[in-house]
Every structure is written in C-alpha cells, then in structure tokens.
Design a protein around this nucleic acid. Sequence first.
DNA 1: CTAGGGTTAG
Length: 840
Amino acid sequence: MAATSLSPVITSHTLNLLANQPQPKTNDSSPIATLKNCKNLVQLRKLHSQFTKQGLIHHPPTVTKLISTCTEMGTFDSLVYAKNILNQFRQDNQNGATLFMYNSLIRGYSSIALGNEAVWVYLELLSLGILPDKYTFPFLLSACTKVSASAEGFQVHGSIIKMGFQGDMFISNSLIHFYAECGEIVLARKVFDGMTDRNVVSWTTLICGYARCGFAKEAVELFFEMVEEGTRPNSVTMVCVISACAKLKDLELGERVCEYIGELGVKVNTLVVNSLVDMYMKCGAFDTAKRLFDECEEKNLVVCNTIMSNYVHAGMAREALAILDEMLRERVVPDRVTILSTISASAQLGNILQGKCCHGYVLRNGLEGWDNILNALIDMYMKCGKQEAACAIFDGMANKTVVSWNSLIAGYIRNGDVTSAWEVFNNMPESDLVSWNTIISALVQESMFKEAIELFRTMQNCGIKADRVTMVSVASACGYLGALDLAKWIHAYIKKNKIPCDIRLSTALVDMFARCGDTSSAMKIFNKMEKKDVSAWTAAIGAMAMEGNGNQAIEIFNKMLRQGVEPDGVVFVGLLTACSHGGLVEEGRDLFKSMKSVHKISPQIVHYGCMVDLLGRAGLMEEALDLIKSMPVEPNDIIWGSLLAACRMHRNVDMAEYAAERIKELASDRTGIQVLLSNIYASAGKWSDVAKVRLQLKEKGAQKVPGSSSIEINGETHEFTSGDESHPEMVHLAPMLDEMHRRVKAAGHVPDHSNVLLNVDEQEKEYLLSRHSEKLAMAFGLISTNRGMPIRVVKNLRICSDCHSFAKLVSKTYNREIIIRDNNRFHFFQRGVCSCKDYW
DNA sequence: CTAGGGTTAG
C-alpha cells in the first residue's frame, strides 16, 4: 500500500548525495575566470582577500565581476557582502562606482524579493548623480512586483517618463507585468495600448495578466487577436493561454487552442506539457492527463508536483501517493512542494503514521522554515485528531500567517470544538475571507442559523467582501430559517455584487427558495442553470417534495434521466419523500423497485425508511411491517420510528407497542421515539401509560423538544416557543389570540385535544393548545402585516392536527394566505383548504 | 534587460 511506501525511500540521503556533487575544475587562473567557478560565499571571501593583497581591488572590471558573482548567489548574506564591496570601492575611488555595479545590486535584491532594498539602491544611485539606463528599470520594476510595492512602482513609472525611457519596449513590457501583478489590469492595458512597437513578450505578458486578474476569457480572446494581428506565439504564450483555459475549466476551448497552436508549428517543450497536464486535470479529464504524464519520457519534478497536487485537490489522495511512488522509483528528487502535497494526502486519508513520517522528513531536511509546510502540518495533525501536536507546531511558529490561524480554526471545528474555534477567531491579529467563511459555515452546521446571518452582517460591516463560499452558507442558513424576505435580499445581493454563481451556489439558492416556500423562484433559478449535476436536480425534486407535488417531482426526475445524468441514492430519498407527501403509493413502489433493477443502486436503510413512511401514511400498515421484515439489513430505530409515527396517525396502538418494543431492544437512546410513544398513548387516552413513559424519560433526564415557530417581519426573524408567556410582544398578542379563537370557533372549530400530552382537565388542555407556537406566530403575523399579505411561519416540529385545522379556518375567516413550513413539508392554507389535502 | 509550470486554510 501507498501508506508505507514513503518511509524507506524519502530520506535525507538522496538530498545529501545531490548536495555533494563535485565542482567542475578549470586551469584558467585569471581573476575573472576564477570567479566563474566560485559558488559560495566562503570561497568568495577567500578570493576577495586574495585580490585585496594583489591590489586587484582597485581594478574596476574585477570588482564588477566580484559584485555580480555575489548578487548571482541570491542569498541575503551574499547581497550584504556585495553592497559592502561596492561601498568600499566607492570610498577608495571617490565615487567611482559604475552603473553596472548598481544594476547588479538591484537585480540581486529583486531576485531575493527585497524590493524595498532595490528601490533604496536606486535612490542612492540618483543621489550620486549617476543616470540610470534602460537596464536599470526592468530590474527595479521586477523588484517592486515581487514585493507588491505598488507605491514605489508608480514612482518608478514617473521616473521612467521623466527620463524619457517610456518608448523602450523592454521597460514597457516590465511595466505591463508590474501593473498586472498589482491587479491594475486597466493600467497594464493602457501601457500596452500606448506602445508603438510590441513583441511576443508584450502580448504574452498582457495575456497572462488578464488571466491572473480573473479575466481568463478575455485572455484567450486576446490570444486570438494576437495571432490575427500577425504575432507568432511561442511556447511561453502557449503556457499562458493553456493555463487560462484551465482557469475557465473549459476543455473544449483548451483543445481548440492547442490545435490552433499545433497548426502554427509552435515547439512543444516540457513546460507546455506541464501546463497541458494541469489543464486536463483542472477540467476533470484525469485519464487524459494521466496518459500524457505516462508518455513523458523524463518525468520532471514540476509535472510530478502538478499531477500530485491536482489529485490531492480532487480528493484522490491514493492516486497522488501512487505518483509519489513512481517519482521515487524513477529517482526524481522530491522538493518541498512534493512534500506539501504528500502532507495533504496524508491528512486526507487520516494517515497519521505517514503524516509523522513527512514531519520527520521536513525536520531532517530543514524545510520547517517554510510557512506553507508548517501550515499543512497543522492541518494534517488536526485532520488526524491530534490537536496537541497541531497546537505545538502553531505555538512554535515564528511567522504565523493568516493561513496558520485559519487551519487551527478549521481544525477545532472539525474536531467539534466550536468554542475554541470561536476564541481563536476572536483573538487572531487579522482575519480574512476564509476565516469568516469557516466560522459562518460552522454556525450553519451547528444549526445556529440566526447567528450565522448575524455574523455575515458583521463581516460586511468589517468591510470584508463575501464570495460564493460565504453565500452558500448564508443561503443555506436562510433556507433553514425559511425567511423569504431575507432569501430575496440574498439573491439580490449576489446579483448586485456580481458574485459568480457556480453549480454549488445555484443549487443552494434553489434549495433556499424551495425551503422558503417560493417554488417559482426556485425553479426559475434551476431552469437557468447551464450545467446541472445530480445535486442540482435533487434540489429541484426536493422543492417539489416540500410542496407535496409528487407528480412534478417524478416528471423532473424523468427529465434528468433523459439528459443522461446518473441518479444516486440521494435523489431517491427526495423522490420517495415526494411520493409519500403526495400520497403516490403506486409510483413510490415502482420507483423503489427500479432503484436496483434499473439503476443498480442498492436501497439503503433511509430508502426503506421512506417506503415505510409512504406505506404507513397511506394506512397500509401490514405492508409496511412486511417490508421491514423483508429488509436485508437489520432495521434501526429510525425505521421503527417511522412505523410508530404512522401508528399514531392511524391510531394503531397494538402495532405501536410492537414497534416501541423493537426500539427498546435496540437499546436506543433516541428520546424522540419515547416522546412519540407517549404521544400515541396520549391520543388514545391511555394516561397511565403516558405517565410510565414520561417517568422513563424523566429518569433519563430527557425533555421533550419544545415546539418553536418563527416568522419574519421586515427582515427580522421573531421566534415563539410553545406556551411562552414572557415574549415581549405578549401584551399585543393576547387580545389577538382571543379574537382569533372566538372567530375560528364561530366558524366551527372544535379543539382536538388528542395532541395535548398532559393529563389535565379539558379547560386546561384547551388553554395549552391555544398557546402552541404556530398559533402565537400566526397571531403575531396578523397584527404585524398589512391586510391581504400572506403569513409565513416556520415550525421546528411537525404541525399538530389542531393547529392544522385552526390554520385552515384562520385563512378563511381573515381571508389571508397562510404558509406553514414544518420539519417535513409546506402547508399552503387558502380559503379554508390546505395544499396537503389533510394528508401529511 | 522584459513574459511562463507545481504551494497550505473555507
């Protein structure tokens, strides 16, 4: 297995072998030639003192070579050394330093990404009265680009114009690059448009800039424009365009571009192959990418890293590790990027042994100075459930980045410790979009929907722009709240802020509107979706299920099949639920059978649950029981619970007791079942049994989940709990409740006491019933909204039969549309009738 | 002298 393959092969041994390669020897003994073979600072120091003794230190060409040798080493120390040589030379020779020396130094600082130092050297050069040349600026701009020193870059651009260098093509190309990297694509374009001469680099730089600034489509268009205009692309151009196609995830376009380039006869080098592999993988064509990879004669490090990281990203950790094996077999030496992917793969598999092995490799090879590696290790330890190890790395980090904090937060949440996550979030020095997204999605997962929305608002006040990940969480929270006004606002917000809707976000919106009872908006979004995957279709089918529209659900399902989308188990849950809510027994049976016979999907326990529900609701109690007995797997408490619920509806006490017995055998702690059983006894008037179950519940310390309903008024969600007299609005609510009861009673309502659990006198029962949360919410809706406006209520439990018939009469006497979403489906009450046809 | 591939967290 891949799990054990890492340890024997990746050792410090391989890297040490490489480090001790012999230096090439030469017989040329001239000072400049000696410098050519000088590879490190120790050797250079020796030569420097040798030159000083020989008096060569006043010889400009030697000093120039000495400095450029240092700067090419590209380390901080070597640059400090170079600067000292230059300063010494300047003192000894009355400012005799040459421009070439300064250019060398600027280039060196640029190479180690010390842009500020480079700018400083440039200023010193000006102060000495030395005029820069056309070579100075590209180095300088590249330094500014690397450290995103935009202010300095703008000043350099000013300098360029002042000194009359703006006509130079190389400098203009550097400017395009600089502006594009700063995200100033408009300014980059302005430079490009102002050029009299352009070469392939100018075009390529601009194309790459567009792609980097998020305009991949424009980048590809620019490429076609370039070819039309007569500029021949080279392999670098090809890499840029292909990576733009990868960003678009547009395989067709990518292949068209390749064909086009092929016709032009552009040379395909390894770099192009690397970008091709990347594009195929990003477009999901893993097989094509792998074939291309296998055809590579020599597998270079980058193509291996590309394929590995893409596999890890796609959740294919095992495939990634197989590539690692192959690399090691072919003696490709892994680098830190390879290790990064390996750590991620280990994290994904939860393979702590391999993760620790990577950690050891990191320490042995001195890679722990690289933040990304440490961040990946934090993530890995967290995913393996080793919080302490993760924290130890975090605490030991000298340069914690936002990613370090975010990894810690995500780790805590994954391990169920939301409190610690929240604490870290509040104490981190600077939070970014990902931090907020992580916490918001955690709140949604913890069912804290109101809090999630609230945090989203706070986030906006902090000036952080939401993206589609944020909106998926927010839409989902809104769906659970069933707040339609909020839903509409969210939809408008996405449009206004031009947040790109991918499949996931669109699906979340369909689901949100469906849960808020706005089926037409849900379907409008669904129909506009360009690409639909199984989840998208499932959301649409779920929308129908919530309305109880079984036939429409089946129609959508058939359309999905016609479009060639493979169904999965989840779609069938939605479908069977829709059939159940719609009372489509025959269709439900057929679909259930077709799962295995047509679609080769073995029904899971949830599907049996749906079927028991479907048959039970229709009163086919014996058939439901037979189905349970025929199940290939042992029925669980949920299955028996479904049967129990049906027994309640049809007042079948005998079978209810049988089902409850089975649940007890399963030693289930599901107190919900016990509550349900006590409900059944209550509705059958068996008060002594109710008392017995209640006692059992009490011993377990369980409590009945309180009924709670919410209603959205002017964008604010108000929540009411059953029997809660302490609500601040109660003063206004009580008279309205009394009036409602009077008018509904006059219209013929007879309170249905079977839903009251406690064995109290009739009058008391009626009072408790009148304080059910959905009635409180309805009353609040009536006093807070204008005449004729629909009233939308969301309830956490199933609506009771008394409230159901009550709502029907309220809709009639007050001439209002009332929409109640319970934990199962929607009930549209209009003119005294409910959309569920009293079947739910 | 200018442009280009692989890099962690939601």
